[in-house]
Simulated scan of single mutants.
Amino acid sequence: IAAAKTYIDTPYEQMDCSAFTQAAFAKIGRSIGRTTYKQATLGSHVSFSQAQAGDLIFWGSDSAPYHVGIYLGGGKYIASPTNGETVSIKSTTYYTPSFAIHM
């Protein structure tokens, strides 16, 4: 989580969602692949309600995830959201993830 927070305010145009998660995990010596699809096949697949801080969280189906972030716990996550935005901390209240990968 500390590694992920070092990217706060990085523009999406420099780092999309899966590049952000890849870079954050690389900072702690973990290779997770470049794409959302590759990252969704790692670790143990769990429902979002079972996510723990540090887990990858995904939106979309298992076979076609379209967004990834890192769960911070307490209903918060960090991600690179979309064009024109920066890496930031958001609430899952308005954008509930579909599933998680326990890392």
Rank of each mutant, 00 (worst) to 15 (best):
I28H: 08
A24R: 01
I1M: 10
A19R: 05
D62F: 07
H45C: 04
A64I: 02
L72R: 08
G33F: 06
I32S: 00
S88M: 15
R34H: 12
K76Q: 14
S63I: 09
Y95M: 13
P11H: 15
G60K: 02
F99P: 00
C17F: 14
F20S: 04
K90C: 06
T82M: 14
K76P: 09
A4G: 06
L56C: 11
T82N: 15
T36K: 07
H102D: 03
P11D: 14
K27E: 13
S61F: 11
T35E: 06
Y77V: 01
C17N: 11
L56R: 10
D62L: 11
S18C: 10
G33W: 06
A26W: 04
G69Q: 01
T82W: 10
F99W: 07
V87G: 14
Q52S: 02
A64E: 13
Y71Q: 02
Q52R: 03
A53T: 00
H102N: 03
Q22G: 10
G74Q: 15
Y12W: 15
T96H: 04
C17T: 09
S91N: 13
K76D: 07
T93Q: 15
D55M: 02
S47R: 01
D55G: 00
A79K: 01
S61K: 09
G60A: 07
A2Q: 11
T36I: 08
Y37F: 07
T6V: 09
H45R: 14
A79Q: 06
E13S: 13
F25C: 03
V87N: 10
G75W: 06
A23C: 11
Y95N: 12
Q14C: 09
D16E: 09
